[in-house]
């Protein structure tokens, strides 16, 4: 970042490893239901728990914030000409829930996926391997679209 041609701060990939994993584990073309090709997974049990804890933590934080919030500056409040009157609770709710179940699904999905690819066990593993990619394959057509659609 010394003599950059343009002064734009653009990172080649997300700085957080969680965001990187969200991309590479949840998106991308899935090779489904073949005999010798498989998808091996990372164990991500902790992510599931972390998401639940994080959301409760957020709820409590906002509950407290709205309690503390000084609602006096009504000038400012009424000054915003009701520009978002039509907040649709249902869509927000859907979004949050969708997000949570989406991540859960991923963690579970990943956890149950086949690990290792020992060629010496090729024969006995072949049948179990075949099932796993098939399941992922059925999700694939969806997940290549917007992730918001899932859940």
């Amino acid at each position: 970042m010394t003599v950059a041609t343009q002064g734009v701060n653009r990172a080649p990939r997300p700085s957080s490893l969680a965001d990187v994993l969200e991309i590479v584990l949840d998106k991308g073309i899935v090779i489904d239901a073949y005999v010798r090709v498989a998808v091996v997974g990372i164990e991500l049990l902790t992510i599931d728990a972390r998401v639940v804890i994080a959301s409760v933590d957020t709820y409590l934080r906002f509950a407290e914030a709205v309690n503390r919030l000084d609602l006096q500056p009504t000038k400012q409040v009424s000054g915003l000409p009701g520009m978002m009157d039509e907040i649709t609770e249902s869509s927000a709710e859907q979004k949050t829930k969708g997000a949570l179940s989406g991540v859960k699904d991923t963690a579970k999905d990943v956890f149950t996926s086949v690990t290792g690819s020992g060629s010496e066990e090729e024969g006995e593993q072949a049948s179990s391997k075949r099932k796993e990619p098939a399941k992922r394959g059925s999700r694939a057509s969806k997940s290549s679209a917007s992730s918001d659609e899932e859940g």
Partner: peptide, 16 residues
Amino acid sequence: QRIGVGEIVTEGVAEW
């Protein structure tokens, strides 16, 4: 109860 209130507020903030 606080989690319940927080959830509603959080959804409102998410929409905003």
